[in-house]
Write a protein that binds this DNA or RNA. Structure first.
Lengths: 327, 327
DNA sequence: GTGAAAGCGCTAACAC
DNA sequence: GTGTTAGCGCTTTCAC
């Protein structure tokens, strides 16, 4: 239903439907003051459909003072499959509420977040980690009503992950634990949080805190770390995530060691290749699906100025250990 | 340099600098008709800085009829580290030309691409695979000047990848090849292209086409495929990508086989965990960096209506085999 | 060199 | 119920 011609405007629809442009706006936006006759409504809707009318985002944003665009700022970190699933969930939930999600990779050479926000006229910005205060302020001035770093989700803090990892190892008799930090700086904050969970579990069990080592996704690096842990009689290692854990596994293999006999290794995130590791990797799985939904609801609530009804949110299944051969 | 107050407008800057709003627009946009005195220029720039002025994307887009937003549509496929690197490169190159890149995951439940495009008022849309004609037309009508599916990059078609994989195995004496297709539907088109390269290489060498099997990232699945290949005396397998290759490796391990003695396996993309596979995975590496830059230049050229100067583009290093232990 | 004025396509008072 | 009207913040033509 469209000629390749010029873009149809709201006025075109009005003309086609034989009503005023205002009426079109009312119908299409489903304004609460439902003073539109059903017949007019249908005529307008039909005309819009026929002309393949699509509201002009900029014009709408300019006039209304707010847009339906939500910007997700993804930090410069290795994006895993899990994250993309989360993004899709978020996008779907927002779309269901009439909001459009776009993502921005905040790499070193891209534009600053406030500029991007201004360019797409986002009315909300979601981040993966806390923004620095300057950025937050800039975003607010631009009109981004909400700034919700993900980690503030009370039910999905990162610490339980570390705790679960450690508890799993402790339950299997390990008394000297290691922790494998990722080398990538962007992953640091998240890693610190997870590590804290491990420390807490160790403290609660009355054993020494974990021996923390940083390993990049490099065989030599990982092999070195393995040697160091072995020298300190570490027998179980919690890795920041599955990729790091896979590096450890490779480092062990390089040293002629195998899990779990020589060393137990537990990862986190349950990436698809975790079960393909040799041996298959024990890991922590969590419910990104629900987290995405919850985040979306939070944004919607904040945007509409309503109080977020915690009870109405989809429940988050707590993270749990996926036991496989590596522990 | 900013009070938490309301957003500064172009008019505010004009007032602060003691000039007209028009002049501000001229200065900030660096209009060709450089009829602005250096002194005025500085005053305006300084005022803008002081007020932390940021142009209102929507207003600008509405008035100018075009925005500086470029939308990258990423299909519903597992996002790997390689892709994120490419996106960053693209964003950086576009930012250098004053353009802002945002990404949209075109999952099943998100909004249709044209809607997203209209919402952010993108003046160009980049895709990973060809859009269907209807979508293209819709995008054009919305005013998206460019639609550039990535795969049309002459110097970076997918076929050479498959060809290289096959040639590598052929050079090592393998005469019965297998091809591992990914199960994920979003990966299909790309996989078909790569497969074609393998077929071409086989034909050129005068051997039978590869025995194609589809394997998800699942141990049982992969083990089954391995059994089938073995039954047909296949000795070398080209996998669509490294993850699929890792699955094959796991399937082999499950069958008590090891690479390259029983089976040679070659992946593609050189993901970080490829070298951590056991044994380390031979794979194809390519230059996403340059591809991103080239794509960005193409968009800029198309947006400014200029002819793309092929010669001025950063050269793309052809894909090459990274030989490791699995072949 | 600089400014006045006319919109871009839409929303939202307000009038009928 | 529906139309009139006045902007939203910016670009751009044209006059000074």
């Amino acid at each position: 239903m469209s000629r390749p011609g010029k873009r149809a405007t709201s006025t075109d629809v009005a003309r086609a439907a034989g009503v005023s442009q205002t009426t079109v706006s009312f119908v299409l936006n489903d304004r609460p003051g439902q003073r539109i006759s059903e017949e007019t409504r249908q005529r307008v809707l039909e005309a819009a459909e026929r002309l393949d009318y699509r509201p002009h985002g900029s014009a709408r944003a300019l006039a209304a003072g707010r847009s339906d665009v939500v910007l997700l700022s993804v930090p410069d970190l290795p994006i895993g499959a899990g994250i993309s699933r989360f993004v899709e969930e978020l996008a779907a939930a927002l779309a269901a509420r009439g909001l459009t999600l776009v993502t921005h990779l905040s790499g070193a050479h891209g534009r600053p977040l406030p500029d991007v926000c201004a360019a797409v006229n986002a009315s909300a910005v979601i981040g993966f980690e806390s923004f620095d205060p300057e950025t937050v302020q800039a975003l607010h001035r631009i009109g981004a009503d909400v700034v919700l770093p993900l980690q503030s989700d009370d039910l999905h803090s990162m610490q339980p992950i570390g705790r679960l990892q450690a508890e799993h190892l402790l339950a299997r008799g390990h008394r000297y634990l290691g922790y494998a930090m990722p080398a990538h700086p962007g992953l640091r904050p998240m890693a610190e949080e997870r590590l804290q969970g491990v420390r807490d579990a160790c403290a609660a069990a009355g054993i020494e805190p974990p021996m923390v080592l940083t390993t990049s996704l490099d065989l030599v690096d990982a092999a070195q770390a393995v040697t160091q842990w072995a020298a300190q009689s570490v027998t179980g290692v919690c890795a920041f995530n599955d990729e790091t854990a896979i590096a450890i596994l490779a480092g062990m293999h390089d040293n002629g060691l195998t899990a779990p006999a020589d060393f137990a290794v537990i990862g986190s995130d349950d990436i698809p290749t975790a079960r393909l590791a040799i041996p298959a990797l024990t890991t922590i799985a969590f419910d990104l699906h629900a987290v995405g939904r919850r985040r979306a609801e939070a944004v919607v609530a904040s945007l509409s100025g309503l109080q977020l009804d915690q009870a109405a949110l989809p429940p988050v299944v707590p993270p749990k250990v996926i036991q496989r051969a590596s522990t």
